[in-house]
Amino acid sequence: MIDLTDDVVLVTGAARGIGAAAATAAAAAGARVGLLDIDGDGARRTAHLIGEAASWAECDITSEDQVHDAVTALSAELGPVTGLVNNAGRNSYADVVTMTTQQWDEVFGVDLKGAWLLARAVLPGMTDRGAARSSTSPPCTPR
């Protein structure tokens, strides 16, 4: 198992499912975890199940102000963020022909804008502390 002792990991979509499992696994590996979800009651319940290593914030990740406030509050409580799990997502089973613009915007607001807002909020601090890493794959060679 990976050792996340002294790490602070934020997890979006953490009220249930994969997000709750990721937060639980990070805490089990030693991290302090910040749970973000639009379902504040669910995030609170998951944080309670995890225990002292967890804190939570109700947050609509499509809102720049809410992301800023949640990251600021969780960082103040848990410490500087060293990891981010952009798990929140929105499914749509609408027919492409009948799908409304609002449905489209809701899906991509969570799936793309939300992930970008969270990364934008935490990456500068992670980079300053040397906690941010990126990896690149070698270029594909056509055959």
Rank of each mutant, 00 (worst) to 15 (best):
H68P: 00
N87S: 14
V8W: 04
N87K: 12
H48R: 11
A53D: 10
G125W: 08
G79L: 03
P138V: 11
R16C: 04
D37H: 04
V122P: 13
V67A: 10
D69Y: 05
G42T: 01
R133I: 01
L49H: 10
T5N: 14
A27M: 11
M126A: 00
R32Y: 05
G130S: 05
V81S: 04
A88F: 11
L78D: 11
T62K: 10
V96S: 12
A43S: 10
L118S: 01
D7H: 15
D41Q: 12
R90W: 03
L123W: 07
T62P: 03
S134E: 06
P142C: 01
A76I: 00
A94W: 09
M99L: 13
M99D: 04
M1A: 15
G40K: 03
L49A: 14
G83R: 13
R32H: 12
D7V: 00
S134M: 12
Q66K: 02
L112C: 09
T24R: 13
A54Q: 09
D69A: 15
E52V: 08
I38Q: 06
A31P: 07
G40Y: 02
D69V: 03
G42C: 09
V71G: 03
E77T: 15
D39L: 05
K113H: 10
R120I: 00
S137L: 15
R90I: 00
